[in-house]
Design a protein around this nucleic acid. Structure first.
Length: 307
DNA sequence: ACCCAGGACTGAT
DNA sequence: ATCAGTCATGGG
């Protein structure tokens, strides 16, 4: 078996856990664009963070194994949503051949319940970035501002820490124009202008209103935070990929359908756990090259030439 | 060189 | 209220 460098401080007490996790697909779950700080190890396990604690996870038969300092059964279970009645959730899905195909592609895909602050930062940084680049930014922020936990291991910096940074230092983490957004957002959270703890207690619509008050957070980013951090499974984020799959499969690839119509369709069609439906569709069209029919050829738009 | 990326913000209608 | 332009940066 391959030897990875020591995960943590050897003095730290390691907790080893085994949880029942029938059907969980770590690969799909951890690479489906909802989390950005997990890496596959040389021996096929996964190294990442649960509630700000470093850990290593892998599947052993139907059991999810987790090793790391300070881990608890409840924390790991909650993080991977192992308490969720998945059979009942999927029973609420509409009879929809596209959704059934998407779910068949990765039936073990699950939605995580991540730490809100880091999820907020990740998705502020997500706009006009590819997933690999969001992962890179997350790593840069940890290296530049996080506490060193071990060899190459840095915790994600909290809001107070980023609020003490400068926009230029954030920009050095390849943030581009998002540096200003993240810097302002960090101060909004550090000053309690917006409370991520209180948002957890609010109904989804009010929680969304609070999130959108944060700089760099619009409807889509707010929805991702609600779904991937606060466990609001009724939230259906529509990004460029989901926009594309909805148009192509449910609106005859029409480019004229407005966003609000896609929104109304998604909210009424996919049922009370439509966030899961959204994640299956998103993962499917990104990973299965045969998922979508080739784009209809639209006549090339006449482009104005610079004169 | 060109187009795209899990968008948000701004200012002009 | 709607709508185009703009915002940095890296990958393909």
């Amino acid at each position: 078996m391959a030897f990875d460098p020591p995960l943590f401080d050897p003095d730290a007490s390691q907790i080893s856990l085994s949880l029942m996790a029938r059907g969980l697909d770590l690969e799909a779950t951890l690479t489906s664009g909802q989390t950005f700080s997990w890496k596959r190890t040389a021996d096929g396990r996964w190294r990442g963070w649960i509630d700000r604690r470093p850990c290593l996870v892998w599947l052993q038969g139907d059991a999810l194994r987790a090793v790391g300092p300070g881990l608890t059964h409840d924390a790991v279970s909650a993080y991977f949503s192992l308490d969720l009645p998945v059979r009942e959730i999927f029973a609420t899905f509409p009879s929809d051949p596209w959704l059934e195909r998407a779910r068949a592609f990765a039936p073990g895909l699950r939605i995580l319940r991540q730490e809100p602050w880091e999820t907020l930062c990740n998705f502020i940084c997500s706009s006009l970035k590819q997933i690999v680049q969001i992962e890179q930014i997350n790593h840069e922020l940890r290296s530049a501002f996080g506490d060193k936990i071990g060899e190459g291991l840095h915790s994600f910096p909290d809001a107070a820490r980023l609020a003490l940074a400068t926009e230029a230092k954030l920009r050095a983490c390849k943030l581009g124009f998002r540096a200003r957004h993240l810097f302002v957002a960090a101060r909004q959270i550090a000053s309690s202008e917006v409370s991520l703890e209180r948002i957890a207690t609010l109904p989804t619509a009010e929680a969304r209103e609070q999130l959108i008050r944060i700089r760099g957070v619009g409807e889509k980013v707010a929805n991702c935070i609600l779904l991937f951090a606060y466990g609001r499974a009724e939230v259906f984020p529509i990004d460029v990929w989901v926009d594309r799959v909805l148009r192509q499969l449910y609106f005859n690839n029409s480019q004229r359908v407005k966003h609000e119509r896609l929104r109304a369709f998604a909210d009424s069609h996919f049922g009370p756990y439509r966030g899961y439906a959204q994640q299956f569709l998103f993962h499917w069209i990104r990973k299965d090259p045969t998922a979508l029919p080739p784009e209809k050829v639209v006549p090339p738009r006449v482009r104005k030439k610079a004169e």
